[in-house]
Simulated assay, not measured.
Amino acid sequence: MYTEGSGGEPSARKVDLAVVERPRRRSRYAELPQGVIEFKAVHSYEAHAQGHLNQIEKLVKVDVLKSMTWDSCVPGDVYAVVLLPHMNIVNERKLADHVMKGSDKIRLNDLLRQAGRVSDTAVQGVALRLAPLGPVRDGALDGGTEYGVHVTVSFVILGPVPIETFETLDRPL
């Protein structure tokens, strides 16, 4: 997909997921996507601080703006998905530290959660930040337990982003 590059010139850009119509014959040129989905992944324990929420919002806005083509067209529906995986240590004896990089952060997050210093509102915080950009939905997927760690992947889906949002967002420099 071609977006606006430096000096206003068309520049090739990769998207995380593009929905395109299957062409009837081969062509050297890629079809304009009917929809674009951009993904971001942030550990849930990082999505509690205001600074991290600001960063997530900024990254999503940049991805949304990058979805515009070089001639300022919006290629169909644009969505952004923020994945917020959360890991819980459920069995210390089975915990495989060689598999679990960052297990110290998981332990710290569990201790803070038990002490009541970290709330379970990471999804709500991200959803509130993204709500001014368009319709937002959220949910969670149970990833199961392995090596003594239970994984849940919460998500926030923004989209389709309305044209008015594209008109009001500042373009990145």
Rank of each mutant, 00 (worst) to 15 (best):
76 G>H: 02
80 A>V: 10
87 M>Q: 14
85 P>M: 07
35 G>K: 06
82 V>E: 02
81 V>P: 07
45 Y>W: 15
36 V>A: 01
46 E>C: 13
79 Y>H: 13
50 Q>G: 10
51 G>I: 00
48 H>G: 13
49 A>S: 13
45 Y>K: 04
43 H>K: 12
45 Y>L: 09
70 W>K: 11
62 V>H: 06
75 P>C: 05
59 L>A: 14
82 V>C: 01
42 V>A: 03
65 L>K: 04
74 V>G: 06
60 V>H: 00
41 A>D: 03
71 D>I: 02
83 L>D: 09
66 K>R: 15
63 D>I: 05
63 D>C: 05
41 A>T: 14
78 V>T: 12
44 S>Q: 10
71 D>E: 12
72 S>A: 14
85 P>Y: 07
85 P>E: 06
44 S>I: 03
38 E>T: 02
61 K>N: 10
42 V>K: 03
57 E>W: 06
44 S>G: 05
58 K>H: 14
86 H>V: 09
82 V>A: 07
85 P>V: 07
55 Q>R: 12
37 I>K: 05
82 V>D: 04
47 A>V: 08
85 P>H: 01
55 Q>W: 11
35 G>N: 01
60 V>Y: 02
54 N>C: 00
41 A>K: 01
66 K>H: 13
61 K>D: 08
63 D>Q: 09
55 Q>I: 00
87 M>S: 15
83 L>R: 06
52 H>C: 10
38 E>R: 05
85 P>Q: 08
51 G>Q: 10
39 F>N: 04
39 F>V: 11
53 L>A: 09
85 P>R: 04
74 V>E: 12
56 I>T: 08
74 V>F: 07
45 Y>N: 02
51 G>S: 11
58 K>W: 14
58 K>C: 11
87 M>I: 06
61 K>W: 02
80 A>L: 05
43 H>E: 12
58 K>I: 00
81 V>E: 09
73 C>H: 12
40 K>D: 10
82 V>S: 00
67 S>A: 13
86 H>E: 15
63 D>L: 01
87 M>C: 15
52 H>V: 00
85 P>L: 09
86 H>I: 01
47 A>H: 04
37 I>M: 15
53 L>V: 14
76 G>E: 04
83 L>M: 15
50 Q>A: 12
41 A>R: 11
81 V>R: 03
86 H>D: 15
83 L>C: 15
57 E>R: 13
72 S>F: 14
79 Y>C: 06
68 M>L: 15
38 E>G: 01
54 N>T: 07
69 T>D: 07
79 Y>V: 04
47 A>N: 01
78 V>N: 04
43 H>G: 13
87 M>Y: 15
81 V>T: 11
53 L>D: 04
61 K>T: 12
76 G>W: 02
74 V>Y: 01
76 G>K: 00
67 S>H: 02
44 S>V: 06
87 M>W: 15
62 V>K: 13
36 V>W: 07
60 V>Q: 00
70 W>S: 14
52 H>Q: 12
65 L>P: 07
80 A>H: 08
37 I>G: 08
86 H>W: 15
55 Q>L: 12
87 M>V: 13
36 V>G: 00
59 L>I: 10
